[in-house]
Design a protein around this nucleic acid. Sequence first.
DNA 1: AAACAACTTTGTAATGGTTACAATGTTGGA
DNA 2: TCCAACATTGTAACCATTACAAAGTTGTTT
Lengths: 144, 144
Amino acid sequence: MKVKDTLTYLKAHDIKPSAQRLAIMNYLLTHSNHPTVEVIYQALSTKMPTLSRTTVYNTLKLFVGHGASLSLTIDDQQQSFDGDTSLHAHFLCTRCGKIYDLPMDDSFKNQLGKTVEGHIVTELHQYYKGVCATCIKNEIKSLK
Amino acid sequence: MKVKDTLTYLKAHDIKPSAQRLAIMNYLLTHSNHPTVEVIYQALSTKMPTLSRTTVYNTLKLFVGHGASLSLTIDDQQQSFDGDTSLHAHFLCTRCGKIYDLPMDDSFKNQLGKTVEGHIVTELHQYYKGVCATCIKNEIKSLK
DNA sequence: AAACAACTTTGTAATGGTTACAATGTTGGA
DNA sequence: TCCAACATTGTAACCATTACAAAGTTGTTT
């Protein structure tokens, strides 16, 4: 993903660009690691030493408000962000804490924009918790 | 729900009973309001003046660990608890903040205990966000 | 019934993530 | 170039949660 594409992406979501916004959005679009504020801050502050945590907080809030990124609250203790705003589910590994993307059930997807028991649905979230494939492998290896 | 039933419920989940644990569990089992720690604390501290917030925190963590209640993290800013541990979905109204119970999709339900893309699934969560029926009615009323 | 050990509760203090705010920096249009 | 609107920064405040040590409770053994 080029910086120019990120610029286009921001404009498409009615977000006025700035060096900080471009850097943060570009990070989200090129990393599928579902980062926290701190992860983003640490990753970018080397290249952009004046970057402030407050800016990362404000910017991410702005992105979410404009539909340019998703806020994930799978775990109580960490808020994650996702540059992929398409409808998909998430899997949180309770061992290593990693978050994986998974497809969302079609029957659930179809309820977006519809009414369910009189309530208007504007947002859908679906997530799994458990032990990921990598942790299972490591577990087996350590038993041998 | 009688206190005796609550006692049975705690024992069934291998939780040693105490006056505080009974009171908190009984609150959860008789209220479907998906309360936060603070709501539970405020509700019970009148009847039990020595109750401490720390106890509410510790007790709820104990309940969740023993599968006697669910921890809901639908919103970043508030953690809720649910005494109904059966598989069901939730609807969060972004206007009034109320949380409603909804049925969970069967196809999603069926994945519990199974493997998805190599990951073992031990927990499922599904939730909707939007505007609830009550808020829609109030909105319409205010326009007249 | 007393003594004791294990467990639970309590209140205060510490922690740490998030937000408020005022000062500084930046941008784009007149 | 100037100016107004907007964005960023860093510090301080906030507040929900947790750590901890003291006090209280329970149940068992003698």
